[in-house]
Computed example of a mutant assay.
Amino acid sequence: MTVSALTRPGERDRLIVKLANIDWTFALLLSIIAGIGGVMLYSIAGGEWWPWAAPHLIRYAGCLVLMIILAMVDLRVWFALAYPVYAVGVLLLAAVDVVGHSALGAQRWLDLGPIRIQPSEIIKIGLVLALARFYHTLSGRNARLSWWLLIPAALIGLPAALVAKQPDLGTALLIAATGGVMMILAGLSLRLVAIGLAGVVAVVPLAFMFVLKSYQKARLLTFLDPEADKSGSGYHIMQSKIALGSGGLLGKGFGLGTQSQLNFLPEKQTDFIFASLAEEFGFVGSVAVLLLYMAVIFMALRIASVSHSHFGRMAASGVTATFALCLMINGAMVMGLAPVVGVPMPLLSWGGTVMITVMVGFGLVQSVRVHRYSEVTSGRGALL
């Protein structure tokens, strides 16, 4: 009779070693942030666990288990799955254009029976894996400046264009920015980066006139002058600023935020949850949460730095870049420093697909830590 591998002493010992190598402090920080999100969702629902707080916490518990399971997965498996995951993500994005579900003026979801998925979240992980695998096999010289750079440019441009077509400009910009950061981390010539940024600035007026939709133009104009239409296109930003400012140093107190409790603040459970937090817990509470986020980013980058494989370093850095960019975009948005683009605050905001994406990404980061001494080969024996 054969014995299951999980019951073999050697395999058990190996599993225990892997569990011991997980960064549990990192997992605790993520749990604290998600817990704060649950508390805020409870508050803005008027002291009710439903419809947001309880599902948020239950979902996080499941995602935490998923992260731990994914941390056990060998980096060579992640490497082998990199291009397939990217390809599936692109195919799902293409499917959205044909049979996608429309809501709030956008076609971004796929209905799969009892569940609804947002492929733009899947492609975030797929792109990080694909770029990490590509740069794993590319020399430093070619990563700096060569015709090989057309391949990562295409890997980034295709999903970004498909997401922008939905339309979801915020996520499209996030995908493009993540890809750009990974190219720079891989060694892209800073001279080429400067030329690219200059080109982007040059085409912005043309994009504004001929590419952006009317509501997207309105968002940009509102960002420049939100007071021009306080009750219309500028309503979101104005109410968010009121919530931020009225919180003062220590906030109004838990459950006492008038902007959220009286429903003046739009999308209070998703895009503008940080404004709700600032109103109830003030400047001190906001800074405390931001420090938690900074600690997560620092620890993830430290994990990336100790990996012995270039694939591991690039993959962990890419996940961290995506997380940090989400944080920066949402923070700038609620403070009126960036247009409203619909990017949620990771782990704090309500949203199932976004949370799963974040935790799968951090499962990859934890896998990089657990297997930091593993060497990843690019040949057929990668899984052997």
Rank of each mutant, 00 (worst) to 15 (best):
W109T: 06
P119G: 07
Y293C: 04
A186P: 05
M359P: 03
F283I: 11
A143V: 03
R59S: 12
F274G: 01
H56F: 09
G89L: 01
G379N: 14
G257N: 07
V39S: 10
G10L: 10
V370K: 00
A321M: 11
A34I: 02
V341C: 08
F264K: 10
R141C: 05
I122C: 08
K268D: 01
M359N: 06
E375W: 13
I36N: 06
H136I: 03
H310C: 12
G89I: 02
A153V: 12
K217L: 02
R116K: 12
W78K: 03
V358A: 05
V306L: 13
V211D: 05
G363V: 04
Y235G: 07
E121M: 04
A198T: 14
S4Q: 13
R133E: 10
F134Q: 03
I32K: 05
G196P: 04
G62E: 06
L383M: 12
V181P: 02
T320N: 06
M294L: 14
Q366H: 10
K252C: 12
T322G: 15
A61I: 13
R116V: 15
V128Q: 00
L112A: 12
K252A: 14
V370S: 09
K213S: 09
G37I: 06
V77D: 02
L384V: 08
A82Q: 03
S240R: 07
I123C: 02
A338I: 06
R191K: 11
Q216T: 04
I195S: 12
G336I: 08
S309G: 09
G47W: 11
S349V: 06
A300S: 15
G89K: 00
A382N: 14
L291R: 07
L112H: 12
G105R: 10
T178Y: 05
G196W: 09
G257A: 14
G331I: 09
L212C: 07
L129M: 15
A295L: 13
A143P: 03
D225N: 15
V73T: 09
P339C: 12
M182V: 08
L174P: 00
L64F: 15
G179V: 01
L383N: 10
G234P: 02
M209W: 13
V340P: 01
G196V: 03
V128H: 00
T171R: 00
A71W: 00
L291A: 14
A154S: 12
G331S: 15
A275L: 06
P344E: 11
A132V: 04
I329V: 15
D271H: 08
G47H: 10
A176N: 08
W52R: 10
F283T: 05
I237L: 14
Q239V: 01
F26D: 02
R133F: 07
A161D: 02
Q259A: 03
M314E: 02
T357A: 14
L162I: 04
L262A: 06
L364E: 00
I242L: 13
P226H: 10
S260N: 15
P84M: 13
I36K: 05
G47Q: 11
A95I: 06
L212M: 13
S317Y: 07
K165M: 10
P51Y: 13
